[in-house]
Design a binder for these strands. Structure first.
Length: 236
DNA sequence: CGCCAGGCCGTGT
DNA sequence: ACACGGCATGGC
C-alpha cells in the first residue's frame, strides 16, 4: 500500500516550478546576445529594475562597449556615465573594470578560459571580486558560463518565506542564500545531471516572472499561479 | 509623489 | 553570526 505523506519542501518547490512552467512557458533566459552581455547585465541589475538595465546596455551598445575589447577601451569615467541609468554607478563601473582586469590578467581576456575552471574554484574567484555577491556570482556561472548552479534571488526568498517552505524564513545573508540554493538543488535532484543547468536556468527565470507580477514587497497575490500551494504569510 | 527594483558592502553589536 | 544603513537612478 502506498503511504500517504506530506510533501517535502523540495517536492513543493518542484511542484511550484511545474506550475510556473505551465503558466508562463519557456522563458529563454538570459535576455542577452552574448555571454559578456550577460555579465554586464548581472552587475547592472543589482537592486535595479531591468528596464533601467536596458537603458544602460543601450548606452554601452552605442559606445561599442558590449564586448571585452570595447569595454576595455572605455575610460572609467566614461563607463560611469554610460551605466548611470542603473544607479550605483560609482560602485558598478569600477566593479565591471575589476572583472575585466581579472579576465585579462588571469584568463587572457577570454570568457571561454574563465568558464573552463572548476565550478567551485570559479565561484570563489567571482565572489572575491568587488561588487560580486552570491546572486551575481551564480547568475554569471549559470547564464554566462553554463555551469549548473542554482540562482537564488529576493523573489525566491519571498516565495519560500511566504509559503513557509523553510522555517524559520531564510534571511538575506550567507546562510539564507545557501538554504535557498540547497532547496533548489534538492527540488531538481532527481532529474538527470545533464538537465540540471537548463532546469536551474528556467526555474530562476520563472521565479522572476512570477515575482515581478505577484510577489513584490507589497504583496499582491491575487491571481498568482502558485496560489494552490499553502500561503502562510505576506510578511517578508 | 512615494515606493520600489532580477544586491552588495562596511560597520556596529 | 546577524541587523542595519548607504549606495543612485528612473518607472509606475
Amino acid at each position: 500500500m502506498k503511504t500517504p505523506h506530506l510533501p517535502t519542501p523540495a517536492e513543493r518547490l518542484r511542484r511550484m516550478h511545474d506550475q510556473l512552467a505551465q503558466a508562463y512557458g519557456p522563458q529563454h533566459w538570459w535576455p542577452a546576445e552574448t555571454a559578456f552581455e550577460v555579465v554586464l547585465g548581472a552587475y547592472l541589475t543589482q537592486n535595479t529594475a531591468w528596464k533601467a538595465v536596458e537603458r544602460s546596455l543601450g548606452n554601452l551598445r552605442a559606445a561599442g562597449a558590449l564586448t571585452v575589447n570595447g569595454l576595455r577601451s572605455l575610460a572609467l569615467e566614461e563607463l560611469q556615465r554610460q551605466v548611470q541609468p542603473t544607479g550605483f554607478h560609482s560602485r558598478k563601473a569600477p566593479a565591471l573594470k575589476a572583472f575585466l582586469t581579472m579576465l585579462d590578467e588571469e584568463f587572457a581576456g577570454s570568457l571561454e578560459n574563465l568558464a573552463a575552471s572548476p565550478t567551485e574554484a570559479l565561484r570563489r574567484r567571482l565572489l572575491a571580486l568587488p561588487g560580486v555577491g552570491f546572486e551575481t556570482a551564480d547568475a554569471i556561472l549559470l547564464y554566462a558560463l553554463g555551469h549548473p548552479v542554482p540562482v537564488a534571488d529576493e523573489y525566491l526568498r519571498r516565495i519560500v518565506a511566504r509559503h513557509g517552505l523553510i522555517e524559520p524564513a531564510p534571511g538575506r545573508n550567507h546562510k539564507g542564500y545557501e538554504a535557498l540554493a540547497n532547496l533548489t538543488r534538492q527540488a531538481f535532484a532527481s532529474d538527470a545531471a545533464e538537465n540540471q543547468a537548463r532546469l536551474f536556468n528556467e526555474f530562476h527565470a520563472l521565479t522572476v516572472a512570477v515575482g515581478k507580477a505577484y510577489c513584490r514587497r507589497t504583496a499582491r497575490c491575487a491571481g498568482c499561479p502558485l496560489a494552490s500551494d499553502p500561503h502562510v504569510t505576506d510578511d517578508l
